[in-house]
Amino acid sequence: MTTAILLVGVGGQGTILASKILSEGLVSVGHDVKMSEIHGMSQRGGNVSTQIRYGDKVNSPIIGKGEADIIVAFEKMEALRWLEYLKPGGKMIVNDFEIPPAPVLMGVAAYPEGILEELSAKADVTTLRAGEIAERMGNARAMNIVLLGATVRAIAAVSDAIEGICWDEILRANIKPAFVELNTKAFTRGFEL
């Protein structure tokens, strides 16, 4: 039995770091874990996806359509783009945050309206404003860790997979000392939402 978590967003949003921390947490309590990421063009404003699968024995490092147990969208429209990867009955966490893509910036396409309503009508969706939460805590860049906290909460709600993980330790190992305190708080905040 494997569980699949898909984190999607836009280059620069910190999805890869969040995925790395989550993966290391899962490894620390004995799960077999595979995580796949695509770099390259993503740094130039393209979309980014990182995929995590964990369980007793994981084969494929990537998640197919209809296979993700949880999708965490760091950007609203990316949630829409990746919806078909969600397993029916799966959970979606959506950051209510817009990053207009090039065609929208140039005025040749409109950023779709009613995304949250549409997603909520189709799936079990939790929405949060992680950008604002992180900003109020002192640094908008901690948005990814707020979302990580929310993801961990969503995992905890359906399984005991994360029991015993010492998140403080894993955050410390992955984040520069000056930002550890902020990010630890951001994680807790995301978890408690």
């Binding site: 029916p88 995304i115 189709k122």
Partner: peptide, 14 residues
């Protein structure tokens, strides 16, 4: 799979 009735705009690298 689940499908949405509205479409995401492409996000090409720039």
């Amino acid at each position: 799979t689940l499908t949405a009735d509205i479409k995401a705009v492409p996000r090409p690298p720039t």
